[in-house]
Computed example of a mutant assay.
Amino acid sequence: MDDHTYEPRPGRVVPPAPNAVEVDPVYQLQTNLVATAYEICVGLDAYRDQYGAFPDSLTVEDDGRVSATDATLSAVVPAYVRISYVPNAPDGTAYLTVADTESGMAMSCVQSGEEGWITNS
């Protein structure tokens, strides 16, 4: 098994997340994490364009929508996913991690300057 393969526990079904394509069940969780991280990063870029900076924090609402103090991002986080967000790290970058609460599989993104978000899973 490579680093990007996840074998769901027996009986666990991971359906496609919003905006994620349906793939082989072995890869569905990874695909969902990638799609969720991408949607959040797009929302963060739109937020920065509108407000001039990234939000100080993100909250996942009861319905799964991601929100900041001034706005709701278009991203929806599946119930089994947790997010970690650091908008202003000491090195000037922003970090976002989207992880499965059961397995720990995660997708991380880093944003530095105007380069855009880069995955480093």
Score class of each variant (00 low, 15 high):
residue 2 D to N: 10
residue 2 D to Q: 07
residue 3 D to I: 04
residue 3 D to V: 01
residue 4 H to W: 07
residue 7 E to A: 12
residue 7 E to F: 13
residue 8 P to E: 00
residue 8 P to V: 01
residue 8 P to N: 01
residue 9 R to F: 11
residue 10 P to N: 14
residue 11 G to C: 11
residue 13 V to C: 05
residue 15 P to R: 05
residue 16 P to L: 11
residue 16 P to Y: 08
residue 16 P to N: 07
residue 16 P to Q: 07
residue 18 P to G: 03
residue 18 P to R: 07
residue 19 N to E: 12
residue 19 N to I: 03
residue 22 E to N: 15
residue 24 D to E: 15
residue 24 D to P: 03
residue 24 D to F: 11
residue 24 D to C: 09
residue 27 Y to P: 02
residue 29 L to G: 00
residue 30 Q to F: 05
residue 31 T to H: 00
residue 33 L to Y: 05
residue 33 L to D: 02
residue 37 A to L: 11
residue 39 E to Q: 14
residue 40 I to V: 14
residue 41 C to L: 06
residue 41 C to G: 14
residue 42 V to E: 14
residue 43 G to R: 09
residue 43 G to P: 10
residue 43 G to C: 15
residue 45 D to R: 12
residue 46 A to S: 15
residue 46 A to C: 11
residue 46 A to E: 15
residue 47 Y to H: 15
residue 49 D to W: 13
residue 49 D to C: 13
residue 49 D to P: 09
residue 50 Q to F: 08
residue 52 G to D: 10
residue 52 G to I: 11
residue 53 A to P: 05
residue 56 D to Q: 13
residue 56 D to R: 08
residue 56 D to Y: 09
residue 56 D to I: 03
residue 57 S to W: 12
residue 57 S to I: 07
residue 61 E to C: 08
residue 61 E to M: 12
residue 62 D to R: 12
residue 63 D to V: 06
residue 63 D to S: 11
residue 64 G to E: 11
residue 64 G to C: 06
residue 65 R to E: 10
residue 66 V to E: 04
residue 66 V to Q: 08
residue 68 A to M: 10
residue 69 T to Q: 11
residue 70 D to I: 04
residue 71 A to N: 06
residue 74 S to M: 14
residue 74 S to C: 09
residue 76 V to M: 06
residue 77 V to G: 01
residue 79 A to I: 09
residue 79 A to R: 09
residue 79 A to N: 09
residue 80 Y to S: 07
residue 80 Y to V: 06
residue 81 V to C: 13
residue 81 V to W: 05
residue 82 R to Y: 06
residue 83 I to Q: 05
residue 84 S to Q: 12
residue 84 S to V: 04
residue 85 Y to H: 09
residue 85 Y to K: 02
residue 86 V to W: 08
residue 87 P to S: 00
residue 89 A to P: 03
residue 89 A to F: 04
residue 90 P to D: 12
residue 90 P to Q: 02
residue 90 P to R: 02
residue 91 D to L: 02
residue 92 G to V: 05
residue 92 G to R: 06
residue 95 Y to C: 00
residue 98 V to T: 10
residue 98 V to P: 01
residue 98 V to F: 11
residue 98 V to C: 08
residue 98 V to N: 00
residue 99 A to I: 00
residue 100 D to S: 04
residue 100 D to M: 04
residue 102 E to R: 01
residue 102 E to Q: 04
residue 105 M to C: 02
residue 107 M to E: 08
residue 107 M to W: 05
residue 107 M to F: 08
residue 108 S to N: 10
residue 108 S to K: 08
residue 109 C to N: 03
residue 109 C to D: 02
residue 110 V to S: 14
residue 111 Q to C: 10
residue 112 S to C: 12
residue 112 S to Q: 15
residue 113 G to T: 05
residue 114 E to S: 12
residue 114 E to K: 13
residue 117 W to T: 04
residue 117 W to Y: 07
residue 118 I to T: 14
residue 119 T to Y: 13
residue 119 T to M: 07
residue 121 S to F: 06
